[in-house]
Simulated scan of single mutants.
Amino acid sequence: MTRNEQIITDFIAAWSRLDAEELVQFFTEDGTYHNMPTRPVSGRAALTGFIAAFLKDWSSTQWEVLNLVSNGDVVIAERIDRTVVAGKPVDLPCCGVFEMRDGKIAVWRDYFDMGTYVGALKA
């Protein structure tokens, strides 16, 4: 496993602790998270608020990594995010593309079907 792959593996594992402050420490100061169905969010302060906003309704999350590949400073993690949101289980297939800089996430783009997420909450 490369250093960048290990950092992303650690980042994915950190989500189970539901701590926005911890999660943003994986990003560069100017890091960007682009949750593809929404607009990108940049900078640690903005990221903290953005991540905390959707964590507030989560009671647990475990992300299963299906495939993890890298090429230099790019890491791709195909996963299933298994989350309990407002008491409802959501199993969300995702693919995250991470651009790394000096051991931190500079850009994270997450691709998934918003309909799958919303549909699980309505069930």
Results as ranks from 00 to 15, higher is better:
103 G>C: 03
67 N>W: 09
71 N>A: 13
89 P>M: 05
57 D>V: 11
81 D>W: 01
104 K>R: 15
97 V>I: 15
110 D>T: 03
97 V>T: 14
89 P>I: 06
61 T>K: 09
49 G>F: 04
76 I>H: 02
107 V>P: 00
109 R>Y: 02
104 K>A: 13
77 A>H: 11
56 K>W: 01
97 V>A: 09
92 L>W: 05
49 G>L: 06
48 T>I: 11
72 G>Q: 06
57 D>P: 06
73 D>I: 00
107 V>E: 09
103 G>E: 07
59 S>N: 03
96 G>L: 08
49 G>E: 14
100 M>V: 11
75 V>Q: 06
66 L>Y: 00
63 W>D: 11
72 G>K: 03
72 G>E: 07
44 R>N: 12
65 V>K: 10
57 D>M: 10
72 G>I: 01
67 N>R: 15
48 T>N: 14
105 I>M: 01
56 K>T: 13
60 S>P: 01
73 D>S: 07
90 V>K: 10
58 W>S: 11
96 G>Q: 05
77 A>D: 13
111 Y>P: 04
46 A>M: 07
100 M>C: 07
105 I>Y: 01
48 T>D: 10
102 D>R: 07
70 S>V: 06
62 Q>H: 14
65 V>F: 02
94 C>L: 07
54 F>E: 01
79 R>Y: 08
55 L>D: 02
98 F>N: 08
59 S>G: 04
78 E>G: 03
105 I>G: 00
101 R>H: 14
104 K>Y: 09
71 N>F: 02
64 E>P: 00
78 E>C: 05
103 G>Q: 05
76 I>W: 02
69 V>P: 03
103 G>V: 02
57 D>C: 05
111 Y>L: 09
94 C>D: 06
76 I>K: 05
50 F>T: 09
55 L>E: 01
106 A>Q: 10
72 G>V: 00
99 E>M: 03
56 K>L: 02
62 Q>G: 06
70 S>P: 10
103 G>A: 02
90 V>H: 06
42 S>L: 07
72 G>W: 00
64 E>M: 08
96 G>P: 08
59 S>L: 01
70 S>M: 09
64 E>H: 14
63 W>V: 15
90 V>R: 04
62 Q>S: 12
74 V>Q: 08
98 F>Q: 12
95 C>H: 02
50 F>K: 08
86 A>L: 14
65 V>C: 08
75 V>R: 07
99 E>S: 04
54 F>N: 03
64 E>T: 13
104 K>H: 15
101 R>M: 10
102 D>I: 04
100 M>L: 14
49 G>V: 08
98 F>A: 06
89 P>D: 13
52 A>G: 07
54 F>G: 02
108 W>D: 04
94 C>Q: 12
107 V>H: 11
100 M>H: 06
